[in-house]
Write a protein that binds this DNA or RNA. Structure first.
Lengths: 336, 336
DNA sequence: CTGAAAGCGCTAACAG
DNA sequence: CTGTTAGCGCTTTCAG
């Protein structure tokens, strides 16, 4: 059906392997013949079959990325960074959405491994226990994680400095004169969020901490509970921006204005944070760069199959001041 | 390095093909032997090489999806729908971001074709001219478009009823008592947006129409221009939600309140529209379903390679009333 | 510099 | 039911 190397060879009057060499651009072929081959290939609309090539070279030039859900802007940005980096190395990316489901995740890994991808990039759904780690390793595919796997350093990881981010948030809120502060976060055991909470509590040890889901809905519900149980709280640090929006919504539903009646901070700095009303003060983490860096590591791993040491890369974070936090000191100043 | 069919065969004491059959689950193999083979395969951690299989069967069980940018929530949702549908058929999806760049798009198509994907799903960057259509067809890969290619029906397409959506928006704004209305849209020639505009103008023929970029920034800039040139306008229909957010931002920067001083409508109903402040009134289009439907068509195309008639599927749309549009009639009523 | 031949891992007739 | 034999389309020694 489709035209093959052999067809080109016959048409050009050369041997299969000569044609192969010409097209691969490798040396050891006369300029003349090469030119001729290229012409014929062009004329015949020859499309190299990368699948056949992969079979012999052992490299698929394909990477897999498993995220919870691309509809989450955080992961969309990571995916984009990953895609660009992959593309820059001549690889493409197959996308998988795990929905934070352990079984699905394993299923995807198996599927990707069977397609002989050169590597997999994923946010592990949960802290990996020894057994799981071994199971992963057994697939024989290089894997880099987007979250710090507590303790076990068998895999390379790339993530932001969540601990520092938590500290920044706490420090900022205190500096703005808030004394009763709450932290709303996701389920216990979620690596990145745990670090955020730890950093935050390091600076605000007496904060109220509520655990729930790290989604808009989750933020909404936790905020509801919080406002009921701890009405004296003046500021809340949500574990991510989407939760922060949930908090804002809950506040609005109760007639509270942000930031006058309640200050809100997020984490991630997704695009919508700057657009929201009021614009959200948050901690920026370089999502695009994280995705790209993870791919770079993967490519390196794929190239020299020798298992080089796992690499732990952590990116800096940065507080982005916008308008969702009230300066209580300034207020007192005006009042005095 | 990795264990192959041959290894399993040797270990199990059977022939290669017997093992192949056992694993493929095809009939014509004794229960006993089959069981034995499966055991051995399991014990050896055998992973079938789908790449090799693809080479012989001619099906890669991989689909490509080319969108402008997954970071755009609209496309993220489409990608998710596509992924789920693909997965349901045992295919995976490779993701490409074209950034609306014609050259990049062609490049991706070529790359996907060389990987022998079973089909490609894309939002064509521009109305396809005859020549381009032929170029695409020459790749020999089934393609389904996410936008109506004006005139030429050589490809299957899946999209929402943009014309109707435009009409709904126009009708709603008029019904709410707005007389001076503007439409802010993307570049001319963008299939879907053009239909939206046409539908809208059908209902509001005297609307002011401004063309720019269909992005947050674009919405911002167009709104700035609009407010300057046509201060009498009371309502604007943005060609998509993200632009609508830009309009809101521009309004806020000029001290205008939405909806009291300016009413704003969008199109798409992305997740943030419900979260925004004020929640955005918009036209919902079933993004997830569109992605899924496109994949279904692609799979069908891939299965019977006979070129069945191209199919044009259009999904219904629905107005979602929230709080970004003022009811001017109600206001007059109160005032009287 | 070019040709011949082996083989990547698997499926698919075709015999037995 | 099981084994034999061809390839799928390409890269890669190894000779010439």
């Amino acid at each position: 059906m489709s035209v093959t190397l052999k067809d080109v060879a016959r048409e050009a009057g050369f041997n299969l392997s000569t044609v192969s060499r010409s097209l691969s651009g490798s040396y050891g072929v006369h300029q003349q013949t090469r030119k001729r081959v290229l012409e014929v290939a062009e004329r015949l609309h020859y499309q190299p079959n990368r699948i056949a090539r992969g079979l012999v070279t052992g490299r698929s030039h394909t990477l897999g990325v498993i995220v919870s859900d691309v509809r989450n802007p955080f992961f969309a940005e990571i995916a984009r960074g990953a895609e660009d980096a992959a593309r820059a190395h001549g690889c493409d990316l197959v996308l998988c959405n795990s929905d934070l489901d352990q079984a699905k995740q394993m299923c995807y890994i198996r599927s990707l491994a069977e397609k002989r991808v050169d590597g997999i990039l994923m946010n592990s759904v949960s802290a990996l226990r020894k057994a799981q780690q071994e199971a992963l390793a057994a697939f024989g595919v290089p894997i880099v994680l987007l979250n710090r796997a507590a303790g076990a350093h068998a895999f390379s990881t790339v993530c932001a400095d969540n601990y520092l981010g938590g500290q920044l948030a706490g420090g900022y809120l205190k500096a703005k004169g808030h004394a009763r502060i709450a932290h709303l976060t996701g389920p216990r055991g979620h690596g990145n969020l745990t670090d955020r909470a730890r950093g935050f509590l390091n600076v605000v040890p007496d904060a109220v901490v509520l655990y729930g889901f790290h989604t808009f809905q989750g933020g909404c519900e936790l905020a509801g509970k919080l406002l009921e149980q701890h009405p004296q709280v003046t500021a809340v640090f949500a574990a991510n921006d989407v939760m922060a929006f949930g908090v804002m919504r809950a506040a609005a539903e109760r007639g509270l204005r942000v930031p006058q009646d309640l200050s809100v901070m997020g984490f991630d700095n997704i695009e919508f944070s700057g657009i929201a009303h009021p614009p959200l003060t948050t901690v920026h983490q370089p999502k695009y760069e994280i995705g790209a860096a993870a791919v770079e590591i993967l490519i390196r791993l794929a190239e020299k199959r020798a298992g080089s040491m796992p690499e732990q890369r952590v990116f800096g974070v940065e507080l982005v001041e916008r308008e969702s936090v009230q300066d209580r000191k300034a207020k007192w100043h005006v009042a005095s």
